[in-house]
Design a protein around this nucleic acid. Sequence first.
DNA 1: CATGAATGAGAATTCATTCAT
DNA 2: AATGAATGAATTCTCATTCAT
Lengths: 207, 207, 207, 207
Amino acid sequence: MPAKRRIKARKQPLQQRSRETVAVILEAAARVLEQRGLEGYNTNAVAERGGISVGSVYQYFPNKDALTLALIARFEDALLAKVRDAVTASEGKSLTASLNLIIRAQLEAHAERAGLNRILETEEDRLRPASSDSSAASELKQLVAALLARHRREIVMTVDDDAIEDLIVISRAMVDHALQKDLSQAAASRRALRAVEGYLLGPQADL
Amino acid sequence: MPAKRRIKARKQPLQQRSRETVAVILEAAARVLEQRGLEGYNTNAVAERGGISVGSVYQYFPNKDALTLALIARFEDALLAKVRDAVTASEGKSLTASLNLIIRAQLEAHAERAGLNRILETEEDRLRPASSDSSAASELKQLVAALLARHRREIVMTVDDDAIEDLIVISRAMVDHALQKDLSQAAASRRALRAVEGYLLGPQADL
Amino acid sequence: MPAKRRIKARKQPLQQRSRETVAVILEAAARVLEQRGLEGYNTNAVAERGGISVGSVYQYFPNKDALTLALIARFEDALLAKVRDAVTASEGKSLTASLNLIIRAQLEAHAERAGLNRILETEEDRLRPASSDSSAASELKQLVAALLARHRREIVMTVDDDAIEDLIVISRAMVDHALQKDLSQAAASRRALRAVEGYLLGPQADL
Amino acid sequence: MPAKRRIKARKQPLQQRSRETVAVILEAAARVLEQRGLEGYNTNAVAERGGISVGSVYQYFPNKDALTLALIARFEDALLAKVRDAVTASEGKSLTASLNLIIRAQLEAHAERAGLNRILETEEDRLRPASSDSSAASELKQLVAALLARHRREIVMTVDDDAIEDLIVISRAMVDHALQKDLSQAAASRRALRAVEGYLLGPQADL
DNA sequence: CATGAATGAGAATTCATTCAT
DNA sequence: AATGAATGAATTCTCATTCAT
């Protein structure tokens, strides 16, 4: 057992290196997924694509699913960043304009690497233990809640947690569908907006 | 290949052997999917579960995906049947009531074997050549169109093909989400109804 | 595949109908072999091709190899018939002319269904227990011997059994090669003739 | 089997370890083929025989056929080496003696592992895209050409490419036959020599 | 830490053959 | 005799993961 010395001095550059390696792995995984699909997505391919060894992949990810989850997290981070920006940018804007901004944020996040993200969404289903809320999901809810709070007076219905969840579900479905159908951003956001606004402002369903 | 002494009793082959075998295979596949998930879903397991040989599976399905697709078709048939009934039953009813019926039809179809159907939906994504409309999808659209046509006057917006697609996307998303969250039928249909009605009757989005 | 199997025909096609069925099976097998190669040659395919059931194939042939052997025998019969004719036709002709006739007979027999016959030859190798002389082979030898006997005086070397075997080996190799290279009959027979004549009339090798 | 496959080597053995493994695999394959025949030749058997895992076989050979082809190449290399030596050794010798040397070279190459080599020859037929000249085949032709060139004056006929091909075909057939009949080297080479010399020096066939 | 060779359980698919009808 | 559904052992090939170097 080697004595531990110079821990900090030595560790720092190594951590830097590790960080890079992780980035390399993630990007390699993303590319494999994009170019060969779930079909051709395997750890050996990822390693090769990243110009590293399989062993290194397992150094940073305990297994393949963990790698995929990291990719999903990366996507969620990017999505959240855009949504955060949208919420900030919508300050002072009308409800419709605000909703439009947030929808566009989602559309953009998904469109960036549409093929990849579609696959990741599929995998998310499989990898996330049934009803476990990712922290990303809950932050997203908070952001949407914050945005809606600004327009409390215009919205008749009670905007509780369930309603926010529904709104997210709806816009996500519309966005997914738009990308699958390869709609223009304009058309996609118009239709999504209608759906979202309808939910919020439409008639109070009452059987 | 050495002939093996078959000691076990042979099955009683009734008439329509083939038809039965296909049914047995499908049901076995469904059960494997339900109980072991995509993970444990393989043709050998299906055969074993069905009490038949793998060979028989391949006698009727050229490969595993074909089997899965047959399962998907079976589900779609069941869904369509329910929706058809709902559309018929909604004759003379109000728009809201009609929408409610169609949503409940979907909810019921999905709820019947929720776990199985969720998996099938995931697989559908993978198995259907991107954006290829199944005939089931197009019949569903027609049914929804027919239902809406009855209420033309109440609906301000233009109900074209895109709108119908959106409605289906929305209700499907709401239904999926409801099942995933294990909501009650009442809650689920209320929320889905709001979404659908909102889309149809809500404010005309205009930026 | 098991090491040992019954290989002879299972049942003598005594009746007219049986005879026809056997012919159908053989022709179906030939066609499958021609069109899909050894790769796609299987008893189910043969049955389908022949418009009969697999069971019927097994009624007349104890196993797949027996079927293949029957095909080989059919080819050998055709070859022998042609060679017999050639030997008859060569009566009174010169040695060179006689050899030419017999070579052409072989060429024709092989050319008729070149693809099929090539495959059969490959299989013959695998199916014939090492050094088992088929009766066809021995009749062929007799025919060649008879032909050569007429020209005893022109041939210096001793024409024993071995020599005849060599001649057959040589001409067969030349014929196979010609067909593989897709040579014209003229070129093929010229070159084969040279080989055969050389063996018979060439210098007495003496180290 | 699928129509198209990769047939070239999958990975170049870079390290010492790899090199050894490849050798182990080849030798294991050879032994399986020798002892169990084509019948019992499968990748699992090869791996087991080599004391390694199937995975390792596939690490170096993309599929079974590629492995077989490597075995064929190994045999051809050995054959060529012997023939090269024979051509060198025959410098200054008479035509007859030279031909004898080259025939013996072939005989020896084939005799070394007769059973194995016979099988490989059969497989070669199946695996080589019709009429594709291996580089080994063309080197063999060059060697024979070189040997004959030394005796131009003794040979009356025109020794073109076709003639050389014929000579190779003839000697190969004689050698195969000799091994199949288990002839002594002396007898085998005497008969092959007669065939080859006859072709070269025999009467100019003229119909 | 990195490497990459090795592992081996597992999964898909085939097809010769059987046998109840 | 004919049929053809059913059988299931066998085989090919993959890929997540490990571990010696």
